[in-house]
């Protein structure tokens, strides 16, 4: 689906502020998959995200979307409609008079593909469909459509901004720390909306975060970046299984994994590969029944 091969990027090349942001990074996400991208501040997560939708051109390496290099065609702008990127704190990019117009901005820029390969402006009813379905995805009440985006609450602004990208119906949705600065309920809701978008459209999602619990709950695969390099990648189970290495990179493991590892160290026969609430519950129940059965045999 979307694949990055051996990307290298340097900020401020040739000045005293030169910094290697990406160093030979490869990354890929399959259709319908949610890929987590984890790393410390300055590890290159955001830089990588901007490469995936052609906002930055790599110094070397390439980005393939459905097998074609996104810089191959003259119009790299096309890739930006296929790969939607929601920046960190996206509410700071709202600018239109009404929420509706703001969400429609991307859709209008994208246009509609005609059968003869030409692009035209979307009609009003087409716009309505895109905008309102995007608002539905993020649970933004339709009554807000005619309000100024600056009148919304913080959480609503965030959702309106995400809707502005979702409205373009991207095949790959990249979100850079979509839950930063939100309260726990707001976090859960946003993550739910993202999952709903994936389930409804079969799109791929790249979730950038430094919260392990968040990524653990949603991601099918995880890539850990450190200082512009890929530190590890694989299934959540495999990555969280290397807790010591994660801690060496100043990243923590999900809270459940942490507790289960401690239990294991205390001698409880428990699988410490659990990282979501559901899996943890099932594992605890299994251990509990095993222990009580064991205790029952002893008394006999």
């Amino acid at each position: 689906m979307l694949k990055a091969e051996h990307l290298t990027y340097i900020y401020g090349a040739g000045t005293p502020f030169e910094r290697r942001a990406l160093d030979d990074i490869s990354f890929s996400v399959q259709a319908g998959e949610i890929a987590g991208l984890i790393g410390h501040t300055g590890s290159g997560k955001s830089t990588l995200a901007q490469h995936l939708n052609a906002l930055l051109k790599p110094l070397s390496g390439r980005v393939l979307l459905d097998g074609t290099d996104i810089w191959d065609k003259k119009d790299a702008r096309n890739a930006r409609f296929q790969v939607g990127l929601v920046f960190q704190y996206p509410e700071y990019q709202l600018f239109e008079e009404t929420v509706y117009k703001d969400i429609a901005f991307g859709v209008k820029n994208k246009g509609v593909d005609e059968a003869d390969g030409k692009r035209r402006q979307p009609t009003e009813s087409e716009l309505d469909i895109s905008v309102y379905s995007a608002m539905d995805f993020v649970h933004l009440p339709r009554e807000l459509a005619d309000k100024s985006p600056f009148e919304l609450s913080g959480g609503q602004k965030r959702r309106a901004a995400i809707a502005g990208v979702i409205a373009m119906m991207p095949k790959v949705l990249i979100l850079d720390e979509p839950t930063a600065g939100l309260d726990p309920q707001g976090r859960r809701e946003i993550l739910g909306h993202i999952k709903a978008y994936r389930d409804a459209t079969g799109a791929s999602v790249v979730l950038i975060s430094h919260s392990m619990d968040e990524v653990a709950r949603l991601a099918d695969s995880i890539t850990v970046l450190s200082e512009g390099k890929t530190a590890m990648s694989g299934t959540p189970r495999a990555v969280f299984g290397r807790a010591d290495e994660l801690e060496a990179l100043h990243l923590s493991v999900p809270a459940f994994t942490k507790v289960f590892r401690l239990l294991r160290e205390m001698g409880v026969d428990i699988d410490d590969g659990c990282y979501t609430a559901e899996a943890a519950e099932a594992e605890l129940l299994r251990v509990k029944s095993a222990v009580s059965r064991g205790a029952g045999e002893e008394t006999c």
Binding site: L55, R80, L85, F87, F105, N109, V165, M168
Partner: peptide, 26 residues
């Protein structure tokens, strides 16, 4: 902000001077 608007398809680089001026609004 420029990158964020570009990600939504904003075009700051093409068109005549009026189009470019208008593109600066976002």
């Amino acid at each position: 902000i420029m990158s964020a608007q570009k990600a939504r398809g904003a075009d700051f680089e093409s068109g005549n001077i009026f189009r470019r001026a208008k593109a600066l609004v976002p």
